[in-house]
Amino acid sequence: MLTFRKILFNLMAWSIVLAVAFPLFWMLVTSVKPGFELFRRPPTILPETWTFEHYWKLLSETNFLIYFRNSIILSSATTLVVVAVATLGAFSLVRFKYRGRESLAFLVLFTYLLPSVVLIIPLYLLLVGLGVSNTIFSLVIAYTTFALPYALWLLRSFMAGIPEDLESAALCDGATRMGAFRDVILPQLLPGIISTALFTFILSWNEYLYALVLVNSDSSRPLTTGVMNMLISSFNIEWSLLMAASVMMSVPLIIVFAFLQSYLTRGFGAGGVKG
C-alpha cells in the first residue's frame, strides 16, 4: 500500500516536472525535424526523420557564428572586469572600516535593484557622446551597470562567510593585509568567486535591452538581438532554424549547468535569498 502511494506520488511529481520541461524538449525536437514534418497534422512527438540540416544552415548561411563570437567576447570581458573589481571591492566593504562604508553598501544594494530603463537613456547619450556606440566595448560598459552591483552583492555575502580569525592569524604571523588577502582569503573565497563569475557570465549572455538599444550593426551584435533579428527580418519564419539557434544559444548554459551545478546552487543561496 505504502509503495503504491509512493509510486503514484513519483508519477505525479515527474509528470509535473516533464510538463515544465516540455517547451525545452519541444525546442530540441523541432530543431532536428525536417521542414516538411513540421507541418504534419497531428504533429509527430519524436521526429520520424532526424536531420541536422538546420544546424548546418545556421552555421553556414547566417551570421550566427559572428553573433556567437561577439557574445563570448562580450560576456567574458564583462565577467573578467566585474569579478576582478568586485572581489577587491567586497574585501574592502567587509573587512575594512572607513567613513562612508555603510552608505556604499546601501548604494550597491540600491543599484542592484535599479531598473535598466532608468539608466539606458543617459547611458545611450553618454556612449554616443564618447563615440563608442555600436561596439562590443560599449556593451561591456553598459553591462557593468547591472553586473557590478550584482557581483559585489554576491561576493560580499561570500566574503562575510569567511571567518575573520583566519585573517587575524595571518596578520599575527606578520603578513600584510594584502598578503593575507592573497594567501588566506582568496583560496577560501574561490568557490564564491567561481559561482559569481558563472552567474555574471549567464546574466551577460542573456541580456537583451542594452544590446537592442546600443548596437545595430551585425558585426558587433550579440546573440540575443542577433537571433531575434533573424525572426523579425525573415519573410518566411523558419521555426526549425530558430529552434536550432535557440539550442545552440543555450549550449554554454547547459555546459555550465552540467559541470558546475553545485557552484550555481551555492551562489543562488548566497545572493538571491540571504541578501
Binding site: 568586485a86 574585501f91 574592502s92 539608466l119 547611458l123 553618454l126
Partner: peptide
C-alpha cells in the same frame, strides 16, 4: 582605512561613471 579606500576606489569610479551620473542625468 587608506588601504580599504584604495581597494574600493575602482568600484566607486565605475559606479560614479556608469550608474550615479546616468541616474542624476535621467
Amino acid at each position: 582605512a587608506a588601504l580599504g579606500l584604495t581597494l574600493i576606489a575602482p568600484t566607486v569610479l565605475i559606479f560614479s561613471a556608469v550608474i550615479v551620473y546616468p541616474l542624476f542625468s535621467a
